[in-house]
Design a protein around this nucleic acid. Structure first.
Lengths: 138, 138
DNA sequence: TCGTCATAGTTAGACAGTCTAACTTAGTCT
DNA sequence: AGACTAAGTTAGACTGTCTAACTATGACGA
């Protein structure tokens, strides 16, 4: 398969996977984006700029998202003692619990889908993951 | 790797791929969703209900999207002579041209990313694609 | 044949996610 | 001190999505 043909097929399957992912979080108490932001906070407090870059969005977008997570108490804003311009964001206990719960149900959903495949198919996906992880991170 | 671990890793990489895809269409004259809808029309006219199901959205959502594609003349609505309730949607010449152009640039972007991988990595992705295609279609 | 129910689609109103532009506040550097 | 830079927020606009309510058409039994 040429690189172009591969790009074509991959482009097609990515669209499919996006729809799959959407179903994986449908009906959850947090949206797909909120889940992703909570995930970024798991390792400890982060600054707004970092979060925006990591998620590939502009700073104002992240402000909005953090506002909506702060209102129900899933995250808390703090300040950086070394630089008063910087706002930090961290998970609350509630936010951490929510993250774990959503992750569990999301993984469970994907797990069900994977169970429907053959062992060889799962193996193929497993082998391809590192390559997919590298894509776009060049 | 257990199925659960695989689900966990896949869940993580899917998030990454979503961001990659978003960059692939950033700045294009149609959004990612509009591109997907145009793609569904490539094989000929479709009915609204079909499109909504294929894209996993409610009918009103598709109405809105088709409205926005119809306004600049990329698609045209028609009727089904056999059932007056049914509206059909098809690509205009303009819409087809737009679709081809966007696909070209999207594939080019993914192609660049794939070029940055090793031959083995591309091969791994290629082998995994059929399995990914099957995911969620059980 | 008519009344009832089902189907296809649109309209209206709401909210999340995203952007750019403009603003505020704080640090930096000469 | 003054000018520039950096971090965030606010404001306004647009896309994408949903549910609820509506219109119009088709189907089917009494």
């Amino acid at each position: 398969m040429t690189t172009d043909e591969l790009a074509e097929s991959l482009s097609k399957e990515l669209r499919h996977l996006v729809l799959l992912l959407r179903r994986a979080v449908a009906g959850q108490p947090v949206t797909s984006q909120q889940y992703a932001v909570l995930g970024s906070l798991e390792g400890g407090p982060r600054r707004m700029t970092e979060l925006a870059e990591e998620h590939g969005v502009q700073l104002p977008t992240m402000t909005v998202q953090i506002n909506r997570l702060e209102e129900p108490g899933l995250v808390a804003r703090g300040v950086d003692p070394a630089d008063a311009r910087v706002r930090t964001v961290e998970l609350t206990q509630e936010g951490r619990a929510r993250l774990v719960a959503v992750r569990r149900s999301r993984v469970a959903y994907l797990g069900e889908q994977l169970d429907a495949l053959t062992e060889d198919e799962r193996e193929a996906i497993s082998v391809a993951l590192p390559a997919l992880a590298k894509l776009g991170r060049a």
